Simulated assay, not measured.
Amino acid sequence: MNLQTTGRKALMALGAALLMAHATAQAPSYPAPKPLGAGAQATLDKLSYKGGTPTIAYLPMGTEYNYHVALYEGIKSVPGIKSFMLSPYSGSDQAGQMGMLQDVTSRKDVDAILIISFDEHSLAPLIKKAVDAGKVVVIVNSDIPNFPTPVHGVVGVNQRIANKALAEWARAQAKDAPKSVGVLDGEPSYIATERAGGFLDGLKDSNWKLATRINGGWSVEKGNTAAMDMLQANPGINAIYASSDYMALGAALAAKSLGRTNISIYGYDGDTGALEDIANGGGVTATTNTSPVKMGRMAALFAVDLLNRKSSGGYVNVPTEIVYKGNVQAVLKQPADLYPKPSKAY
C-alpha cells in the first residue's frame, strides 16, 4: 500500500514538473506588443512567406558600432531560422544602407527584414516597397510609434522614459547638488531627439541646468572631439549626458585629457566597453543598459511570429536597467548576454 501511495505521488510530481516545463516553454519570449500609432501598422495580408525555415535579413546602420553587431548576436542565436547581416561600416553611410535595403527587398529568399533606421524619412519609400513585396519589416532599436510608412513591428526601448529615469537617478545620486550639464546628441533623428529629450525632461524644475547641447556624431572619435570642444568652451560643465555609450566613452577620454576628474558622465546603450569602463573607474559614471543581445533575440522571435501569423504586430518594449559602479559586476558576470565579451572574467 505504501509502495502504491509512493508511486502515485511520484507520478503526480512528474506530471506537475512536465506541466511546469510546458508552461515555461510556452511563456512569451518577448513582452506583449503594444499598438503602434494610427495608420502605422502594416497588415499581414501581403506576406509572401509560405512556411519552412524563414530567412531574416538584418540591416543595421554601421558595423562601426559594437551595439549593432551585438543585436545580430541575439538574432542569429534563435534556432530554426536562417539569417544574415548587411551593413555599411560607417554609421553615416545612409546611401549604402538604402542600396542594401533595395537588394534584400528584391531577393525572393528573404522573408523578413530587421532594420535600424537613423533617418526614417529617407528610408520610408524603400520600406514601403519591402512591405509591398511581401516581407515582414521590423524596425529595431527604436520606439517610434508612427514610422512614416506602415511597418509590421517595432522593437526597442521607450527612450524618452528610460533617459528621464536616468536623469532622475543621477540627480538622486548627487543628492540634488547643482550641476552644469552638457549634452552630446547623436546625428539628427527620431532616436537622438527622444534620448536627449528624455534626459532633459528629467532635469526640469531642478538645479541641474543645461549649459550646451551639441552633435557628438554617435562615435567614440566624434564624441571625444565634441566633448573636448564643449568642455573648453564651457569649463563650468560638471555633468555630461551622451545619447550613446560610444559618445560617453569619447567624453570620458576628453575629460581625462583635460585633467577634469570632477565630471559625471552618463551614457545609453549597455555597450560592453562602457560597462567595463564603469567597473574599472575609467570615467563613465552610469549607463542605461538596453541589453542589445537580448533585444536582437526578441526581434527575431517577433519576426518569426509575424511570419507565422501568431502576432498581428505592434511595439515590443525591451526592459532596461541603470548600471553603475554598484551593480555593474553582476551584468559583466553574464557574458552570454554581452557582445563583445568582457575582456576578463568578473
Rank of each mutant, 00 (worst) to 15 (best):
residue 208 W to P: 01
residue 308 N to C: 04
residue 248 A to M: 12
residue 263 I to S: 09
residue 202 G to Q: 05
residue 220 V to C: 03
residue 201 D to P: 07
residue 282 G to E: 08
residue 265 I to Q: 10
residue 215 N to Q: 06
residue 238 N to F: 06
residue 250 G to R: 00
residue 217 G to C: 08
residue 255 A to H: 04
residue 309 R to F: 09
residue 271 D to K: 04
residue 204 K to E: 13
residue 301 L to V: 06
residue 254 A to G: 11
residue 197 G to A: 05
residue 287 T to W: 01
residue 288 T to D: 11
residue 257 S to G: 12
residue 292 P to V: 00
residue 313 G to L: 05
residue 192 A to P: 09
residue 307 L to Q: 03
residue 316 V to Q: 00
residue 221 E to G: 10
residue 232 Q to L: 14
residue 273 G to D: 11
residue 292 P to D: 02
residue 243 S to C: 15
residue 245 D to T: 08
residue 199 F to H: 02
residue 210 L to R: 02
residue 260 R to K: 15
residue 317 N to D: 15
residue 200 L to P: 01
residue 243 S to M: 11
residue 219 S to V: 06
residue 240 I to F: 06
residue 226 A to H: 06
residue 284 V to Q: 11
residue 310 K to T: 07
residue 262 N to E: 15
residue 297 R to M: 12
residue 311 S to V: 03
residue 215 N to D: 15
residue 296 G to Y: 01
residue 312 S to R: 10
residue 277 D to H: 09
residue 230 M to R: 08
residue 252 A to K: 01
residue 198 G to N: 02
residue 213 R to K: 14
residue 250 G to F: 03
residue 305 D to L: 02
residue 260 R to H: 10
residue 280 N to V: 01
residue 239 A to P: 11
residue 262 N to T: 11
residue 198 G to L: 00
residue 305 D to W: 00
residue 257 S to H: 10
residue 214 I to S: 06
residue 232 Q to M: 14
residue 256 K to E: 13
residue 278 I to A: 06
residue 239 A to C: 12
residue 213 R to I: 00
residue 303 A to W: 03
residue 277 D to P: 09
residue 224 N to T: 11
residue 285 T to S: 13
residue 217 G to E: 10
residue 271 D to M: 09
residue 238 N to T: 11
residue 307 L to V: 06
residue 225 T to V: 13
residue 308 N to T: 11
residue 317 N to H: 09
residue 316 V to H: 01
residue 267 G to E: 07
residue 267 G to A: 10
residue 266 Y to P: 06
residue 246 Y to Q: 13
residue 311 S to L: 05
residue 266 Y to M: 08
residue 293 V to A: 03
residue 216 G to Y: 04
residue 250 G to K: 00
residue 281 G to I: 01
residue 242 A to Q: 07
residue 312 S to K: 14
